[in-house]
Write a protein that binds this DNA or RNA. Structure first.
Length: 337
DNA sequence: TAAGATAAGAGGGACAT
DNA sequence: ATGTCAGTCTTATCTTA
C-alpha cells in the first residue's frame, strides 16, 4: 500500500506541529482533521492514510494473525467480500477431483456466480465508490464519514433515486449529507469543486436525499468552522478564543438564525482580530472561509450592532472573562451580550 | 490599498392560488 | 403545479479614508 520511504516521512509529519513545532499533533475522529494539541493548529489536507497498516515490517507483525486481510466496508461495491469459487478442477493439493465432486463443484460454482451481482448495480457501486476513495483523500475525510456516505448512497440507490441522475452528483450529495451528519465542516462548495459537479446540481440532489430518505440533518455549527478558518488564515489562539466568545453570545441572542455558518464564523474572527488589535484584511479571512468580503462585512456589521460593541478610536482591548472587554488605553469597559 | 456602500441577480424556502 | 415574496449570498462597481 505504502512504500517504506513514504511511511517514514508521514510518521514524522504526523506528530510534529508545523506551527509551534511541538510533537503534539492529534487526529479528530469526527472531522478527520489533524490538529495540534498544543496550539490548536489544524491541517485540513490529509497527508497520508493514518489507518491500520496492512503489511508487516517485522517478524512479530508477520506472526500476528490479527493483521491479516482488509476490513469489510460498505464503501466497497461487494463490501470487501470478493471470494469466488475458482475454475480449476483440482483440490488444494493440486490433485484432480473425482467425477462426483466435479459435478458438485460445478453446481456450487453456478450458484456462487449467481449470488454475486454482476449487473448494473455492481457497476454503479464500483464507479461510485471508486470516486469516493479519491474524494476521501482530497477532502481529508474520516472513515466513518466515508462509511456513512456509502450507506446513504446504497439507500438512495435502493429507492431508485439514481435513475436519470449522474452518479457523481448523487454521490457528492450523499457525501455532503454524511459530513453534515457527522459534524464535519465541509461546504457544498468544497465537495462540488473536488468532484467536479456544479454546486447547483449537488445541492439539488442533496435536497432530494433529505426529502426522499427522510434524513434529519443538524444545522452546521459556526463554531465548528472557526478553527478551520483560523488555521487557514494563520490566526492566533487568542483571536480564536475571542471569536468563540463572540459567536456564543451571538447564538444566545438568536441573531444567527438563517445566516450562513461560514459567514458568521468568518465575521466573528474578523471582529475578534479588530478587537485584539491584530492586523488582518477581510480578504484573507474571506479567502480562508471560501466566502466573499461583502458577506463578511454584512455579518460583521450585524454582529457589531447586535452585541453593542461601541467603536472607539481602536479596539486595543483586553479580554476579561467570557464577555467583558476593557480598552487598554481609555480604560472603558465593554460588555458583550 | 483596504474597507465601506450600493445595486443587480441567482437560488431556494414559505406560502397562497 | 405555479407564482409571489422576503431573505441570503454573490459579483461588480464606485467611493472613501
Amino acid at each position: 500500500m505504502l512504500d517504506i520511504g513514504m511511511f517514514l516521512l508521514t510518521s514524522n509529519i504526523d506528530k510534529r506541529c508545523a506551527h509551534c513545532g511541538k510533537d503534539s499533533m492529534l487526529t479528530d475522529n469526527a472531522t478527520g482533521e489533524r490538529f495540534c494539541g498544543g496550539c490548536g493548529f489544524v491541517i485540513t489536507e490529509r497527508v497520508e492514510e493514518s489507518g491500520p497498516e496492512w503489511r508487516s515490517f517485522s517478524k512479530e507483525e508477520y506472526d500476528d494473525k490479527t493483521r491479516t486481510g482488509s476490513p469489510t466496508s460498505l464503501a466497497m461495491h461487494d463490501m470487501g467480500l470478493a471470494t469466488i469459487i475458482g475454475y480449476e478442477n483440482n483440490d488444494s493439493t493440486g490433485k484432480p477431483l473425482s467425477a462426483s465432486m466435479k459435478s458438485r463443484i460445478k453446481r456450487l460454482r453456478t450458484w456462487d456466480s449467481r449470488s454475486q451481482v454482476h449487473k448494473s448495480t455492481d457497476r454503479n457501486f464500483r464507479q461510485a465508490f471508486g470516486e469516493l476513495g479519491r474524494l476521501k483523500d482530497k477532502l481529508a475525510l474520516s472513515d466513518s464519514v466515508i462509511e456513512k456516505t456509502a450507506y446513504i448512497y446504497r439507500k438512495a440507490f435502493g429507492r431508485g433515486l439514481v435513475k436519470g441522475r449522474s452518479i457523481p452528483g448523487l454521490l457528492a450529495a450523499a457525501l455532503y449529507a454524511a459530513c453534515r451528519d457527522a459534524g464535519t465542516p465541509r461546504t457544498l462548495n468544497d465537495v462540488s469543486h473536488q468532484i467536479n459537479v456544479k454546486r447547483k446540481d449537488v445541492s439539488r440532489s442533496y435536497r432530494l436525499l433529505l426529502r426522499e430518505l427522510d434524513l434529519k440533518m443538524p444545522v452546521v455549527d459556526p463554531i465548528q468552522c472557526l478553527s478551520r478558518i483560523a488555521s487557514e488564515a494563520g490566526l492566533s489562539e487568542k483571536v480564536k478564543r475571542h471569536a468563540l466568545t463572540i459567536l456564543k453570545n451571538a447564538n444566545n441572542m438568536e441573531i444567527t438564525a438563517g445566516k450562513g455558518p461560514m459567514g458568521l464564523a468568518a465575521a466573528a474572527l474578523y471582529l475578534s482580530c479588530v478587537m485584539c488589535g491584530e492586523n488582518i484584511t477581510q480578504k484573507v479571512i474571506a479567502m480562508a472561509a471560501g466566502i466573499t468580503e461583502v458577506t463578511i462585512r454584512n455579518r460583521y456589521k450585524g454582529l457589531k450592532e447586535s452585541l453593542k460593541i461601541i467603536e472607539t478610536t481602536d479596539f486595543l482591548g483586553t479580554i476579561c472573562g467570557d464577555s467583558i472587554f476593557i480598552d487598554d488605553q481609555s480604560g472603558e469597559v465593554y460588555h458583550v451580550g
